[in-house]
Write a protein that binds this DNA or RNA. Structure first.
Length: 685
RNA sequence: GGGCCCGUGGCCUAGUCUGGAUAGGGCACCGGCCUUCGGAGCCGGGGGUCGCGGGUUCAAAUCCCGCCGGGCCCGCCA
């Protein structure tokens, strides 16, 4: 691990020495060095309050004593040591540090920040993994950007990284979409839209039909006579809605007894189904009506759906062909969208492949052998349930996994009553596959926090299988969802802001700014592309994954508010300086650091030196926002330097060369950092 | 009812794990700066009960307890 920053190394050697001093005094305390808040307090500070307290000494005297001790030692890069209050403040030798840091950055160039040694360890980052029946929208995009940037950084740190997309083609939603997709195909209805948009609409409509049917079945249990009102099972007419509401109102006691459901929530469901139906019918009348017509020929869509789910799980045609055809078409579009964002995968893993290979069944059997699977009679069949809580209690694992003892972890349903598997069940098999077949040492799953519980259950399931080490190395990289101002995204209503739209509108916005410039059309296009990507990615990555992002398209388009373009802008300015400078020897031996030891320069040097540390922190803490923050601050620091310190019109050639070297080094870090975020640094903008 | 997460000037955000010096940035606002390397910029200014209340400590945004507000989850969905 040689990618330590220089100052980090200096701190370590100081810490060793201080630890020795503390030990000599017979004190047990540990001390951490810190970065002082102001430059006048030096570069590294050591507060001595803790040890002073433990031996009842005056902190100021003790600090003086420590300072004396340290002064006697020889530290390579330390210039002076001062005491202020209970702090020992250490000032570094700017010239020496600057020379060393610049030499490091300039010689490594594109590799600065990266580990030289490649590690053998394979890390799998699974991200995006959207259902293959809809377009990538702004919410999914957060997942993709986090996963991709994180994978980039891991690979900079020397790991072997593979990016995997899990194609979830066995879910209920996908199969119902495929049914509708097939019905339209039979009627020769061709999509005028991109495939992912097309299936997104089909999904919404089919889902609405099935919800209507399920709702009616419930009502009819209470009032079989109301069946006569029904024209079609898949729509709730205005009359029906009225009557249903009356039934729910008047007979609420019976309703709750028979259905075991809350009347208020049933009312809400009813209202929702009707509203969604109206909305979809209005927006997509043809598709809606044709699907309704075709669906009405089927006795029960929900039964039919269940049959098809079973058939697909067994790998039977024709549903197999239909689903595969539809999903591949959607995935093609998803790939296209993501490639516009510069995001690629090493592998698309089809859920169904795993199931058809018999691997899911194998895992299921193994789980049953553990003795923690409970079978429960239901719907004329048997559901299998994994007793997570029971296992945790029997192994006393709760505190290890950070779960409150009193909290009872809900069981995981492994199979439906007809024997088909559920998402998380298949995910257990998939996870085993990642570790076992792919040989991953570590797996990061970039998945929204709403899946917290299933991810925990998955983790425990691995332990039940005896794969504790894998479970320890399975990391749920969680993030919160994206909310929108002014509208709500909803797959059920086929309402979303797609990643393509976001990019298109942002590009247009950048083009407007570029209008007055005298770049060629071609250049403008290229720049707009890069800057738009920079704005979007930076904005989404800049927010902690654990915080809900409220995406305001208007704000996102205000490029002044966006720090991505600001960072890019400073890179472009750097390129401009270097271009105008012509050919200067900027190799380390030609640079005299004594010319660049002012506060502004020193601030830049310290930040540049910190870059490798930042990358490590991003990975350790799952916080890509540390990198966006870092880059923004580096750009701010550079901007200040740029304003105050002339480079091309320096006083003499040596000074000019030194300043040019510094500028170049800043450019290298900005460019490398942006690249890790998946953002290109334009030389002109 | 239970569990997890978030709460820092008008808005966004760092710092919280591992407690230390004047809570760091950005946007917006007000006032300056285009004869100087790219003004998508720079300089200056106002604006804060770090959600609230206790506790621990020489020292709390940070640790502990209790509340409040917001989000998510507790389906034979994913």
């Amino acid at each position: 691990m040689n990618a330590l920053s220089l100052i980090r190394q200096i701190i370590s050697s100081l810490e060793d020495r201080i630890a020795r001093w503390i030990k000599e005094k017979g004190i047990e305390k540990k001390i951490d060095l810190q970065r002082p808040p102001l430059m006048k307090y030096g570069d590294i500070a050591c507060p001595v309050f803790k040890i002073a307290k433990s031996i009842g000494a005056n902190p100021v005297y003790l600090a003086e004593e420590l300072a004396e001790y340290l002064r006697k030692e020889k530290f390579d890069f330390v210039e002076k040591i001062e005491v202020y209050g209970g702090y020992v403040n250490i000032f570094l030798d700017r010239e020496k540090v600057t020379a060393k840091v610049l030499s490091e950055v300039l010689t490594k160039d594109q590799l600065y920040g990266c580990m030289e040694q490649k590690l053998d360890e394979l890390i799998i980052v699974e991200h995006t993994s959207t259902n293959p029946n809809a377009p990538i929208h702004i919410g999914n995009l957060r997942n993709s950007l986090l996963g991709d940037a994180f994978a980039n950084i891991l690979s900079a740190l020397g790991y072997r990284v593979r990016r995997h997309f899990y194609v979830n083609d066995m879910g209920r939603q996908v199969i119902m979409t495929a049914i509708g997709y097939f019905l339209l195909k039979e009627r020769n209805v061709k999509s005028a839209l991109k495939h992912d948009l097309w299936t997104g609409i089909i999904y919404a409509i089919m889902n609405n039909f099935i919800s209507a049917e399920e709702f009616k079945e419930k009502i009819w249990k209470i009032r079989p006579d109301l069946k006569e009102l029904s024209q079609t099972k898949y729509q709730i007419s205005d009359d029906e809605e009225k009557v249903f509401n009356e039934v729910l109102e008047r007979e609420h006691k019976r309703v709750e007894d028979i259905l075991g459901e809350d009347v208020e929530s049933l009312k809400r469901t009813l209202k929702d189904i009707v509203e969604v139906s109206r909305d979809l019918k209005k927006r997509f009348p043809e598709i809606f009506n044709i699907l309704l017509e075709e669906a009405s020929k089927i006795e029960s869509l929900s039964k039919y759906l269940e049959e098809q789910i079973r058939a697909y799980e067994r790998g039977e045609n024709p549903i197999k062909m239909v689903v595969r055809d539809m999903c591949s078409n959607v995935i093609k579009e998803v790939k296209k969208t993501l490639s516009r964002y510069g995001i690629y995968f090493d592998s698309f893993d089809w859920e169904s492949d795993l199931a058809w290979s018999g691997f899911v069944e194998e895992i299921l059997k193994k789980l049953e052998e553990s003795g923690f699977v409970i079978s429960k009679k239901s719907n004329g069949g048997e559901v299998k349930i994994l007793d997570i809580e029971g296992y945790l209690r029997s192994r006393n694992l709760k505190s290890k996994l950070g779960i409150k003892e009193e909290f009872e972890v809900p069981p995981l349903v492994l199979t439906r009553s007809d024997g088909t598997t559920l998402y998380t069940t298949r995910d257990i098999a998939y996870t085993v596959w990642k570790f076992d077949k792919m040989g991953a040492k570590k797996v990061y799953n970039v998945i929204a926090t709403e899946q917290n519980l299933p991810q925990l259950q998955l983790n425990v399931a691995l332990r039940i299988l005896g794969y504790d080490e894998w479970a320890d190395n399975l990391i749920h990289f969680k993030y919160e969802l994206v909310h929108l101002t002014g509208m709500k995204m909803s797959g059920r209503r086929a309402r979303y802001i797609t990643a393509d739209e976001v990019l298109d509108t942002t590009i247009n916005e950048v083009l407007k700014i570029l209008e007055k410039s005298n770049y060629s059309e071609e250049e403008k296009r290229k720049i707009a592309q890069k800057v738009a990507i920079g704005a979007i990615k930076f904005a989404l990555l800049n927010v902690s994954p654990l915080k809900v992002v409220t995406f305001d398209i208007k704000k996102a388009l205000d490029l002044k508010e966006n720090t991505g373009p600001f960072v890019q802008y400073n890179y472009a300015r750097i390129c401009s300086i270097l271009r105008k400078a012509g050919t200067y020897r900027l190799d380390p031996s030609a640079v005299q650091a004594k010319w660049i030891t002012g506060d502004l320069e020193w601030d830049l040097i310290r930040r540049i030196d910190e870059f490798p540390e930042v990358l490590k922190k991003v990975v350790q803490n799952l916080k890509p926002e540390l990198l966006t923050n870092y880059l923004n601050e580096l750009a701010v620091a550079f901007s200040k330097f740029y304003e105050k310190v002339p480079v091309l019109r320096a006083e003499n050639d040596d000074q000019k060369v030194a300043r040019l070297a510094l500028v170049k080094a800043v450019g290298i870090v900005l460019r490398n950092g942006l690249k890790l975020l998946g953002i290109e640094a334009p030389e002109k903008m």
